[in-house]
Amino acid sequence: MIETASRIKQPEHPLDDLLRTDRIPHIWCPGCGIGTVFSSCLIAMKNSGLNLQKMAMVSGIGCSGRAAGYVAMDSFHTTHGRAIPFATGLKLGNPELNVVVFSGDGDLFAIGGNHFIHAARRNMDLTVICVNNLNYGMTGGQMAATTPHLAKTTTTPMGNPEAPFNLPLLAYAAGATYISRWTILHTRDLTRSIDTALKRKGFSFIEVLSPCPVNYGRRNKEKAFDSLKLYQDKGIIKNGANPSEIEMDFEKGITLGDFLDVDRPTCIEQYDKTCRLI
């Protein structure tokens, strides 16, 4: 069966020129939202008019971390949690590069949390896209720093006793200069936000809520379409919302939107101004 399927000539996809097509099929499960976020990211990159040769993608470890392996540009699949410091070195080593960090919530906010807050504090010129699927998908669905209170995972079989991060608030407190949150149902808004982030200076953070039906959904009575329905029913677009008031609440509502877009000198600008006494 598989052999037969592979002989069928697949039609060209409009994003083929940005993909390592020789690495497709990808590893993502049916119903997973990462591909949708990835697709939005590629569309934004393609339509941005920016020089793609000067663009690079850096990922950490996990399902979302595999994105770097599929994009046909300089791409780096690094160690768990360390995409941001690797990307920081890449950007400082060649400030002409437009560096995008594409990774998951476990990678960026548990093991990599320290690097996230410091890159935001420095206003390091990076676009950080976090696919938030509320758990560790790659390892089979364990509790993450974003898992809702009382949600079931393989390491919280009685329900999560802990509280999750409010990621936009964390980014805001740490000094990020662009912050937005979308779901995979809001691809147009998401693509526009990524486009904005790619073209602006400084540390940009975009959180994207994304279903993980295989590992998170099935333990929390949430099928892939249920997650999308939840995003539709509970998603409230409120641009400019106060990050301290947008804790994710799947009962009352999930606030989405562009929350912040401010100018602050970047890490490189400040370094040049302060340290290079030419």
């Binding site: 690094t78 920081t88 070195g89 080593g93 060649n94 690097h115």
Partner: peptide, 10 residues
């Protein structure tokens, strides 16, 4: 991690 990234920047 940063010195690996900067090394790939050349």
């Amino acid at each position: 991690a940063s010195i690996l990234g900067a090394s790939w920047a050349g």
